[in-house]
């Protein structure tokens, strides 16, 4: 397989806290993977380990490299945006572009200029003079102008309005993504990127709860909307979660065939958010 990222028994502890607890997974080329987890789940630590920003135990290989040891070589083929705004505030836009152009072999000045020409970002302005939205636009433009094999976006659209978010994800799909690239996204607004993803990974308490292609979810997971009278019978099939909504009972089943559930009520494919809540609650029990 063309594994871009390969993790085997990867752990990272801070004192007695296990931020990443013995995880193993593969990420293949050409995927858009959503990494989803509550705050403090270990997402950021896992990303950091993959980006070579922190060391870890176990075997971790990204693009065939040891990320911590070969960070420089890795960064030539990875671009990432961290969850906190990080562009230096004192720098001027044209200086920033000059700097990245001089230090990054896969950066296209032409492309960044084109992306920025669609925004109101002035080249002579200092970053501190730009609005929060413009700073993010600038950062995203730089990231998208890097011809990277792996793009890591940690909460990329935090603090941006809905119009820009839609536009950004649209651009990401139409202009950036192709089968040669892989994108890894974490976000709190799962609903917005749900349709974009080819794969999802749930993580909580440093462990992976689910790692699956999106189109396999419909086969494995079914949401049942049933009335109280049928609820007991449906419960017999072992739902992984259950709650009440508008007088109806909503149950989520894993690995139960649809034909066996049809009799009890309406069937749906669960949203990623619903599935996530069910999985996390289930794992914490």
């Amino acid at each position: 397989m063309t594994s871009l990222v390969s993790a085997r028994n990867v752990s990272k502890s801070f004192g007695s806290l296990k931020a990443v607890d013995n995880v193993s997974f593969e990420i293949e080329k050409g995927k858009i993977l959503g990494l989803i987890g509550p705050n403090g789940a270990g997402k950021t630590t896992l990303l950091k380990a993959m980006l070579g920003l922190t060391d870890c135990e176990g075997e971790l290989s990204v693009l065939g490299l040891d990320p911590f040891r070969d960070r420089k070589a890795l960064m030539q083929n990875i671009s990432f945006i961290a969850d906190v705004a990080v562009l230096p505030r004192w720098i001027r836009v044209h200086q920033l572009l000059d700097f990245v152009e001089a230090t990054h072999p896969n950066f296209s000045r032409e492309r960044v200029e084109k992306l920025l020409s669609e925004t109101k970002v002035r080249r002579a302005a200092k970053v501190r003079e730009l609005s929060k939205g413009m700073v993010t636009q600038l950062h995203l433009a730089i990231i998208m102008a890097i011809d990277a094999k792996l793009l890591v976006l940690d909460e990329p659209t935090l603090g941006l309005d809905i119009i820009f978010r839609k536009e950004f994800y649209g651009n990401l799909l139409s202009d950036y993504f192709d089968e040669e690239r892989t994108i890894l996204i974490t976000t709190h607004q799962v609903e917005e990127i749900e349709r974009l993803l080819t794969d999802i990974m749930f993580i909580d308490d440093g462990r992976i709860l689910l790692h699956s292609p999106m189109d396999a979810l419909a086969d494995s997971y079914t949401q049942l909307l049933t009335s109280k009278s049928h609820a007991d019978a449906a419960r017999g099939l072992g739902p992984i979660s259950e709650n009440e909504m508008f007088g109806k009972t909503v149950m989520l089943f894993e690995g139960v065939e649809r034909s066996r559930l049809e009799a009890f009520g309406e069937l749906h494919t669960p949203s990623v958010a619903d599935l996530f809540v069910a999985k996390v609650k289930g794992a914490r029990k």
Partner: peptide, 14 residues
């Protein structure tokens, strides 16, 4: 302090 270290370290510079 201004967290720009995260940006600098996202570039291929040791």
């Amino acid at each position: 302090k201004d967290k720009s270290i995260l940006f600098w370290r996202s570039l291929p510079i040791t």
